[in-house]
Design a protein around this nucleic acid. Structure first.
Lengths: 114, 114
DNA sequence: CTAACCTACAACCAAATGGTTGTAGGTAAG
DNA sequence: CTTACCTACAACCATTTGGTTGTAGGTTAG
């Protein structure tokens, strides 16, 4: 999970992901697209690979990069959980507000209104 | 976007997010939960705040932490885009396969050298 | 075979990260 | 007022990160 989000926390890597979703570029073809050395792009690809976001497949002397959609889905689901938890809290608060229509009786020691 | 995913790429910070979704803990209360110094937790909170994932609200001498659901939603939507792009590609490929039933032509001219 | 190309990997470096301790200021409680 | 608590922030340190260059090996083209 750490590796997953860390891999996504870089604009170059997210762009590599997008390009790899559209086609299956080789590492050197990817490297042409960015103002950095081939080795730097190689490292970015390695980070994405460690996170499970892409896989490499040897094709002759080239190494084709392709995305693994399951990893993207995994990251999305983690955020879904957070969002659901937030929604759950809001629902719970709505319930409390519905059951306790007494805004004057709020207890300042622990909880308060939003 | 970089800040957003970077903030999510740490287990402690994700846990802080979960606790802040459930309640609105103070920074010192959060610090009690982790085997690190108060200042370290303070830094984690600052990273989450820079990413827009949480906001701090002064309550007397305490600083209450609360999540901003829109930021979580923003991150999720970025992943949705990636997933949608991937699905779009698969659909396109399905169309091509349907229109071009020729399994011998598995050597596309795209990946060659120049 | 030879040359060009693609990749892997090591060594190195500046900057950012994640942690610590220490100091100082503002607020609440006795 | 005095004390205890919560926070902010600076200084420092080890490790990681993101970039570079250089070297070496495998594959394709001529």
């Amino acid at each position: 999970m750490d590796h997953l989000f860390h891999a996504l926390a870089d604009a170059t890597r997210r762009d590599i992901l997008r390009r790899s979703v559209r086609g299956e570029p080789s590492v050197s073809r990817l490297a042409e697209a960015y103002p950095m050395s081939f080795a730097a792009v190689q490292k970015h690809v390695a980070v994405l690979e460690r996170a499970g976001l892409i896989t490499k497949e040897r094709r002759g002397r080239e190494q084709l990069v392709r995305t693994d959609p399951d990893a993207v889905r995994r990251a999305r689901q983690a955020l879904d959980q957070l969002e659901a938890a937030w929604r759950g809290r809001v629902d719970r608060m709505s319930d409390l507000l519905a059951q306790d229509p007494d805004p004057e009786e709020n207890n300042p020691t622990r909880g308060q209104d939003r």
